[in-house]
Simulated assay, not measured.
Amino acid sequence: MTQIVADRNIVLPTIEQRAKLFRGFADPSRLAILEALCEGPLVVHEIVRRTDLSQPNVSNHLRCLLDCGLVASDRDGRFMRYRIKSPRITSLLSDVDALLEVVAEGVKACGNYRSNQGETPPDRTK
């Protein structure tokens, strides 16, 4: 289901691939980890300290981020050091922050996507 442009050499991502990529960014824990890694490569215990997430939670989300190709790891002695795989990811997160400056009120008011932090969805039966 890949779209191919006229010259047949360039393959564009499909809507499904884009959606799958954004699902990788859609979890607050993964975003916290990515934000921490934007400052530079870190080992798991450093990510735990910077994000206030548990070590098992960080390890689980790092596995997901590795599988998705958003982070990479390098051996550093007995530890694995994790880093953002592409500078474009850091740029994307920065662009998202800039976009939120424009659309934050609409995002906050949106009843379709609620965080799991005690917010209840609107009553649509009325």
Rank of each mutant, 00 (worst) to 15 (best):
M1T: 09
M1F: 04
T2N: 14
T2K: 10
Q3Y: 11
Q3A: 12
I4N: 09
I4D: 08
A6V: 11
A6T: 13
A6G: 01
D7P: 08
V11T: 14
T14C: 07
T14R: 08
Q17A: 08
A19D: 11
A19W: 06
R23H: 08
G24T: 01
A26I: 04
D27W: 02
P28M: 00
R30G: 03
L31N: 10
I33S: 05
E35F: 11
A36S: 08
L37I: 02
L37C: 05
C38S: 15
G40D: 03
P41K: 04
P41F: 01
P41R: 06
L42P: 02
V43Q: 07
V44H: 00
H45I: 07
I47H: 03
V48I: 07
V48F: 02
T51Y: 03
D52I: 05
D52Y: 09
L53Q: 15
L53G: 09
S54Q: 10
S54C: 05
Q55S: 14
N57K: 15
V58I: 14
V58H: 08
S59Y: 06
H61K: 13
R63I: 02
R63D: 15
R63L: 14
C64T: 15
C64G: 06
L66H: 10
C68A: 14
G69R: 07
L70P: 04
L70E: 02
S73H: 08
S73I: 00
S73D: 01
D74A: 14
D76W: 04
D76E: 12
G77T: 06
M80E: 03
M80N: 13
R83P: 01
R83A: 15
K85G: 03
K85W: 03
S86L: 07
R88K: 08
R88I: 09
I89Q: 04
I89E: 04
I89G: 03
T90E: 06
S91I: 09
S91N: 12
L92C: 11
S94M: 06
L100H: 06
L100C: 05
E101D: 14
V103T: 09
A104R: 10
A104M: 13
A104I: 13
G106C: 01
C110E: 10
C110V: 00
C110L: 07
G111E: 00
N112M: 08
N112H: 08
Y113P: 00
R114E: 09
R114Q: 07
N116C: 03
Q117G: 05
E119P: 02
P121E: 13
P121L: 11
P121K: 14
P121N: 04
P121D: 11
T125R: 12
T125H: 12
